[in-house]
């Protein structure tokens, strides 16, 4: 399907994707509850910072950081690795391959269709964050807000593409869910989801800064809470989008080779 045709089909795809999400609302609620880890970390780190700041973080900084983390996580979530792995194993990927729409586009739309429902959870948290920590941390430069929006898109793309790449590996291994668990474990530690990247020792931090995980969560959160200047923000944005490009090329290559191995089991 050409880009133009795909764009024309998008309103219908999103409408139906959203209708499916509403149909699975109980599952969605469970998923949202499963992503409350930042709120637990908020309580934990606030307790740690009760007597003295940790690095540059006092209690209020931790509240702002982890509430922002919760919001960014809601808006950058993807689960295509599990979908793909399941559909490869059961052969149901065949139904997507029969349509003149790239399966990755249909997965992307399905994943993005969840965002309106997640906003229902994320927006009250955003209001709560503003009440608790004020607006002083938020960037005042409109360019930084544009960079923030681009960083959200970049964060989502890295999450989606990493999922898609790992899911595609199921075409070789039969199932790649455990591999996704390994990725998630690394993500939890190195993305800034549980521990702000700034709090790592310099040596480890240097490594984290070249890995993709930080660009999934930490970078957009830092844009909201750390007071980055334009130069630093643009440098990080460039780093993030280099990863987006690398993941795109990687997934594209994996997909092309992997499809040759698709066995369309069942039926």
């Amino acid at each position: 399907m050409s880009l133009r045709s795909t764009v024309r089909a998008l309103p219908t795809l999103f409408r139906i994707g959203f209708a499916e999400m509403v149909a699975y609302r109980a599952e969605m609620l469970v998923w949202v509850l499963a992503t409350t880890m930042p709120l637990i970390m908020l309580a934990l780190w606030s307790a740690v910072a009760h007597d003295a700041p940790v690095g540059r973080f006092d209690q209020e900084d931790f509240v702002a950081y982890f509430l922002a983390t919760f919001i960014v996580r809601q808006l950058t979530g993807a689960w295509v690795a599990w979908q793909l792995s399941f559909e490869v194993r059961t052969g149901t990927l065949a139904m997507r391959l029969l349509r003149p729409l790239h399966p990755m586009v249909s997965y992307a739309v399905e994943n993005l269709s969840a965002i309106p429902l997640r906003l229902i959870v994320a927006l009250p948290v955003a209001v709560l964050a503003l009440i608790l920590t004020g607006v002083s941390r938020l960037p005042r430069d409109p360019v930084l807000w544009v960079i923030f929006l681009l960083s959200l898109l970049g964060g989502w793309l890295i999450t989606f593409l990493a999922n898609a790449g790992i899911g595609t590996l199921a075409l070789w291994t039969g199932s790649s869910v455990k591999l996704m668990d390994v990725w998630l474990a690394l993500f939890m530690v190195f993305s800034g989801y549980l521990i702000p990247v700034e709090l790592f020792p310099p040596l480890i931090r240097g490594t984290i800064e070249v890995l993709p995980f930080r660009y999934q969560i930490g970078f957009p959160v830092e844009l909201l809470t750390r007071g980055l200047d334009r130069g630093a923000a643009l440098r990080l944005l460039l780093g993030q989008w280099i990863w987006v490009g690398l993941f795109t090329l990687g997934v594209r290559a994996l997909w092309r080779r992997g499809l040759q191995r698709f066995a369309a089991y069942g039926g």
Partner: peptide, 13 residues
């Protein structure tokens, strides 16, 4: 391709 043992219909819609 119609497969008697697979479906393309969206299950909950």
């Amino acid at each position: 391709l119609v497969m008697g043992q697979k479906q393309q219909l969206l299950w909950d819609l």
